[in-house]
Nucleic acid binder design. Structure first.
Lengths: 344, 344
DNA sequence: GTTATATTGTAAATCGGTTTAGTATGAATA
DNA sequence: TATTCATACTAAACCGATTTACAATATAAC
């Protein structure tokens, strides 16, 4: 079991000091007036023996890690999985590594994860924040650590964030349903006080108010067990047979909704029109294909990472925070079109 | 900006040595005969000031990190995202944190990630390995680092792994199609020499050979751009109109397949019966619902993590490797049932 | 012949912990 | 009284890098 080679070994092999090796490896040879000859010798040896600096030791000393901590709500959710994937790619290109974790919107777990990230000296944070973590995020920022939020934000904390125009998105989607002639339009969502969910709710309400229609709102508590989402949803639909259209607040509840609709044997869009927030394969492939509000995941990931990199760039200090709001696309498909007799 | 409190600060505040503090915090007080009185005092102060040991320094000294490195093929793939999520949960309960990365089946990237994990001193590795990393994995094992593979394995490396019975699964699925009366059964998959893909291919071939049917095999090169998967798939289907059933090798190609089938306007199962490896929402919700080979993701995750924890348990040395093969479930749905006239 | 000034490098401190090897004290034993 | 032993704790080395402050030598300037 050959012990790993360290900077001291390199220094000893060449009979020089490890200081010199360190300077050379960190590109400070010229500044420190190390002769070109020696530089070459060191670099050659380093390459030969495949020496890699121990980044733990490096981080301990410098406080930097080239690692970005990414906290999503749930990595098994397609929206977050996609964003995570794109961010990982972009960061990788720039020499950063990502470590990610799911928060489950659990404040305790999130604080624990922040602590872990923190003493692992991650250089920056990307997060879809749960509630009640304002203080800890403030603390991070005060310590000079860049934080970029996405999907939602904390209203009382002045950080950079990248979100979409949730309110307009649901307003627009609801308007679409109204224009198609639907009038008893329900909004089914998870119970949440996060900004994105509040905005989505507001968009829906505004559209209904404008059209003088009565809102039908059903909030369901999130649960990892899908049955506990489908059950109340099913009960609600059975109790309100008059509803002729549904707007779902997220992809996950939309997916559960489709399962319930199948179980109940309802026909889409004859019995019920459907629109969901977030777009993914299930909605495209369901028949009839489901109208969905598509978030620009690539643009979101790009913006997140470039905001963070800008903050990480030490030269660039006294920066102001940037709040970026991107627009969504309403992908209109068959599930929300007034039912027309097929040409036979 | 209040500097973070360190073990020396704790020691100084109580006028004792940091050694003592360290012993107490690591539960070695009794062994080291530290008086209960002092132990209490230290623990009280630690709690009061909220001191948390710097785990970087800790890892640097001990070589342990309580972190497990998880390498999946692509975290945005539902199968891997689910496994990752379950593993994260299980590990979290046991006090381990997970850092995960997507390998893209890219050998270079994977080696780079192993290097990163390694000098971050992760305690153990879980990976769905790409090809040509045998040497590096051997190196890890020789250094005493536990490695658990899943989804596939490296035939020439003796490690623990958790896989499913791929060969029987596709054999069984193909048999099912044959029994339903289909005879021109295609197998559409990604080009791959990974064990799981070879086994799936073998299962398909064996079933056909047994039934004396001709195989129709289409291999497509993986690409992140979905269009480059759908295009050749579409061409293949158009060129082979005789095919009456398809077995897809993975969820991703299955999903792409469904999109192509929709585009071509083919009727499932009248024109074409469908079965896919892996099961997820898309297959359940597609209409007709798609028969799929469901991997026991929870059992896979459980087995992976308990294998790894067993290895991490230092008491338990001179262990032999364990190779676990789990069985899958063929969820038979409408996409593969002989078409029967609906009762009108 | 000194004194400045580059040139080329190095010794030692540091990051924040853990671990080894030992010390100081009092009580028990020979 | 001298020796052993248990008790309660600590100094210093160490993990592997970076960084600060300084040293040794040669050359140029006065």
């Amino acid at each position: 079991m050959n012990k790993k080679i360290s900077i001291v070994d390199i220094a000893n092999l060449l009979n020089i000091s490890k200081t010199t090796v360190s300077f050379i490896l960190n590109g400070r040879a010229q500044e420190k007036r190390i002769s070109e000859e020696l530089v070459k010798k060191v670099l050659k040896l380093v390459k030969e023996v495949g020496y890699k600096p121990n980044s733990l030791a490096k981080s301990l000393r410098t406080g930097k890690s080239n690692i970005i901590g990414l906290m999503v709500e749930d990595i098994s959710n397609p929206f977050f999985a996609n964003i995570a994937r794109l961010i990982e790619d972009r960061a990788y290109e720039k020499g950063y590594r990502i470590i990610y974790c799911s928060t489950d919107n659990d404040t305790e777990k999130t604080l624990d994860l922040i602590t872990m990230f923190r003493d692992r000296h991650v250089d920056g944070y990307i997060m879809a924040p749960p509630k009640n973590i304002e203080e800890d995020v403030q603390e991070l920022i005060k310590s000079g650590l860049p934080v970029v939020m996405f999907d939602r934000y904390l209203p009382n904390v002045d950080t950079d964030y990248v979100i979409v125009d949730n309110q307009f998105s649901t307003y627009n989607a609801t308007r679409h349903l109204i224009e198609q002639g639907y009038s008893k339009i329900a909004y089914i969502t998870f119970t949440s006080e996060q900004t994105q969910m509040l905005d989505r709710m507001t968009g829906y309400k505004n559209a209904l108010k404008e059209a003088k229609l009565k809102p039908y709102i059903k909030e369901i508590d999130f649960n990892r067990n899908e049955e506990l989402i489908k059950e109340p949803l099913s009960v609600y639909l059975k109790k309100n047979p008059g509803i002729d259209a549904i707007l779902f607040g997220t992809d996950h509840i939309g997916t559960c909704g489709l399962k319930v609709i199948n179980q109940l044997g309802l026909k889409v869009p004859q019995d019920l029109a459907i629109v969901s927030f977030d777009d993914y394969d299930v909605f495209e492939l369901y028949s009839p294909s489901v109208t969905a509000i598509a978030q620009p995941v690539e643009a979101i990931a790009d913006n997140i990472i470039s905001l963070l990199l800008k903050k990480l760039d030490a030269n660039n200090s006294n920066q102001t925070t940037q709040k970026i709001t991107l627009s969504t696309t309403l992908n209109i498909r068959n599930s929300s079109k007034q039912f027309l007799k097929p040409i036979s």
